[in-house]
């Protein structure tokens, strides 16, 4: 039942964002509100077991949702800008030392690993190639492996980011 309500609220929210500005009850017209509620009920009936598969309602806390935009606009965006300038420099000078390194992480939940892997992939210069399902180690193709890093068998996750400690932020959001 909780899964049904959460899926309903989430899909209704997405529908209302997409149709904002259609009428005069708030920002929406009566027909859009009715269609949104009916479609969200249908979606919730079909998809409740997919969205809440882990039966873990930690993410229902709105404070965690508020942290996500702060995370994306703040430390993550700074990291992306810095890495973009770095890749731009390497495009021009061709000074690259590519390699696939193994990165271990303290994050335990699926959502945490998902956010960390996506953050790493969205940061230019690093791509998550594969994930070890049991140990949750990430295999990351790095365009510029640091001096001496190729000798270390495993690298900690926060060593990939130089400005902000992104894994710490993700732990705050997802765990």
């Amino acid at each position: 039942m909780i899964a049904f309500i959460l899926t309903f609220l989430l899909s209704l929210f997405v529908y209302l964002v997409l149709t904002a500005g259609s009428g005069n009850i708030g920002l929406w017209s009566a027909s859009e509100l009715t269609a949104g509620i009916v479609l969200s009920l249908l979606t919730a009936a079909v998809a409740r077991n997919f969205l809440c598969r882990a039966r873990n309602y930690r993410m229902a806390n709105p404070l965690r949702f508020l942290l996500i935009p702060i995370y994306v606009i703040g430390p993550f965006f700074l990291e992306v800008i810095k890495a973009n300038l770095d890749v731009a420099y390497r495009v021009i000078t061709l000074r690259i030392r590519p390699g696939i390194i193994r990165v271990s992480s303290d994050l335990k939940s699926d959502l945490g690993i998902f956010m960390l892997a996506n953050s790493i992939t969205l940061t230019p210069g690093t791509i998550t190639v594969d994930i070890d399902e049991h140990t949750h180690d990430l295999f990351i193709h790095n365009i510029n492996v640091g001096e001496g890093e190729e000798a270390a068998p495993v690298i900690r996750d926060h060593e990939l980011f130089s400005i902000a400690d992104l894994p710490q932020w993700i732990r705050r959001i997802a765990e």
Binding site: P98, G99, I100, F139, V145
Partner: peptide, 15 residues
């Protein structure tokens, strides 16, 4: 495989 590569841990892990 990544052709100029200083290290390839994924290949060493046998995946």
């Amino acid at each position: 495989l990544p052709s100029p590569a200083v290290v390839d841990r994924l290949k060493e892990a046998g995946r």
